[in-house]
Design a protein around this nucleic acid. Structure first.
Lengths: 205, 205
DNA sequence: GCGTAGCGAAACTTTAGCGTATCGAAAACG
DNA sequence: CGTTTTCGATACGCTAAAGTTTCGCTACGC
């Protein structure tokens, strides 16, 4: 057909698509969702306006809203917490520090908002988010606690699911209650304080 | 002006407003919000249809959506947890059991959803919810932990704000993660297990 | 029983977003 | 340079929902 080698590049004729526009669209989508806009309220027109882009440019890439949101959330995937592995206590602190930072970040928060609020209305989308984002983190946390049990740092009869809810839930709830006033007013060592208090227990000796 | 005594009743002429319709409107509002409808998506038409009422009947009582929601949430105010007071451990369990039940109840959940998601868009409304619903519960929980410190059941150096986030956050997060699959599949003694594990601590002795 | 005001139903006007089409300009390629 | 495709902008027809108004009917007090 054409004179170009189709088996390799097959670069299409004409002006190439702007990577800059694509990034602006993704960013605008994440920004709007980070501002608390629900999936239902999110409008293509608002995204186009925010991105400084024509609606055509969006519809040329994504045929509907859900596809765009999936792609946008995929770009968001922050790396799994990096843990030194020296002690379970230190790894728990490092993990919760990442959770704390995510909980304070509007863009990361919107992932959880969607997962929790739109589960019934967009089951496939929510399931994709669960598999891609939530499950890997749960697995890391679970493995970490199991390792602690093996090394003796953690009590052998630990209820692991409850402990995972405790560690993450404490950070999330703390940020949402105390930290609502000023997100930056959080103590910088909150992750360490939480881990130490939970390891030691609330009761007196 | 009129012949009636205006200082007291000043009952207006004509057909009185139907208390039955008013209750139906409030109930429909709470039901819809309990189904996960956000404040922005909540439509007067949906409320009218659900309540079996004309839109006129709603607009005659509330001039806008926010006023209606405030009134509806005010009717929702569930009683503060009743605690026996025998031991701090038992009271904590009783308190968390109430939290667990609220976390599973759609109508109660919607209060928190609004408080967390619509804080920026409806600051006055959210503040009213905080003062009426959240703060009293935080005060009860704080007093309970202080009592535990006084009686020696709780360690004296407890970080009370962190501990409050731990107790409530664990229940909320547990319900949201484990309980998402089947709300009724929750262990019935989850409050007791959470309290005991937190009192004892996660570390081995 | 008359007047008044609330009742539910339905028609209306307005607004917002969707998805498509069209435009002149711009960017890559041969 | 000419072709091809994308760019941002704008306009269009369509649908859904909001909020307002109208209408015939109903319930209560005088």
């Amino acid at each position: 057909m054409t004179t170009t080698d189709e088996t390799q590049a097959a670069r299409p004729a004409g002006r190439p698509r702007s990577a800059r526009a694509e990034k602006a669209i993704i960013d605008a989508t994440l920004d709007l969702m980070g501002e608390g806009i629900s999936l239902a309220e999110l409008s293509i027109e608002a995204i186009a306006a925010r991105a400084g882009v024509g609606k055509t440019t969006i519809y040329r890439r994504w045929s509907n809203k859900e596809d765009l949101v999936v792609d946008a959330l995929a770009k968001l995937k922050s790396p799994l917490p990096e843990m030194g592995g020296r002690s379970v206590r230190e790894d728990l602190i490092a993990y919760l520090e990442v959770v704390r930072r995510d909980a304070c970040d509007a863009r990361s928060r919107c992932v959880l908002n969607i997962a929790m609020n739109d589960a019934e209305r967009h089951p496939r989308l929510v399931e994709r988010i669960r598999q891609a984002t939530i499950e890997p983190r749960r697995a890391v946390m679970s493995a970490l606690l199991q390792r602690g049990i093996a090394t003796g740092e953690i009590r052998a009869d630990l209820d692991v699911p409850v402990a995972m809810a405790t560690l993450v839930g404490t950070v999330m709830w703390y940020v949402r209650s105390v930290g609502l006033d000023g997100v930056d007013g959080l103590p910088h060592d909150i992750a360490e304080r939480i881990v130490d208090q939970l390891l030691a227990g609330l009761a007196s000796r």
